[in-house]
Amino acid sequence: MELNNKKENLAQPQILNLDDDFSIIKKFIDGDQSAFQILVKRHKEKVRNIVYLTMSNSNLVDDIAQEVFITVYRKLQSFRFESQFTTWLYRITVNKCKDHLRKKNVRRIFMPLQEGAEVSHSFNSVEENDMSKVVMDAVSKLPAKLRIPLMLKDIEGFSYQEISESLECEMGTVKSRIFRARERLKTILKPLEKELIA
């Protein structure tokens, strides 16, 4: 009964609690396979959104997010409870995205025309696209090293500390990259300034 109540509470993870994650992971390590499904359910949307914002491509989201959780499943037995589970999870997520971006860049060398066409889409007018899409198009033009910290900050609401842990880099680097991303974005959005403000 107590376990059922617990599951009901977990069904609406508005506030993710460190202890909840740890207790679920402990259950999984103790052999309760269903605990993993609860873990996925709690964190899937955050992971999917990080993938989406990082890759700027909704077609790949579920495939990459699935890879993330399969990796977590394989490594969870050796989780050391030294840091938050989410820090570890987001690091894996970002690394998976980086892997895919790397592969995409390698493919681009061999298929410059098709891949080039894919990434260099131009803006349509704001009449035809909503603002979210226009801004997302602009963000997708940023290099990954600037785009990822910016998205983690502005959309996912990560702190600089959390971003530095997820990206495994210094906080100063995070600060600098977010600033440069905003500067670059401002230049990209400049031609659409009137429409965006209107």
């Binding site: 993993f36 499904q37 996925v40 359910k41 899937k44 949307e45 999917r48 959104n49 989406y52 914002l53 909704s58 989201v61 579920d62 997010a65 699935q66 959780f69 399969i70 499943y73 603002m131 979210s132 801004v135 997302m136 963000v139 910016l150 998205m151 502005d154 959309i155 600033f179 905003r182 974005l185 401002k186 959005l189 965006l196």
Partner: peptide
């Protein structure tokens, strides 16, 4: 002001719609 404007625009990016069967697919894949 310029930086605030850019941040305001990026915060308007829509999040993905939820995927209700995602965990089922992950478990099946595992």
């Amino acid at each position: 002001d310029e930086l605030k404007e850019v941040k305001n625009l990026t915060s308007k990016i829509k999040r993905l719609p939820e995927s209700p069967y995602f965990e089922t697919k992950v478990i099946a894949e595992i």
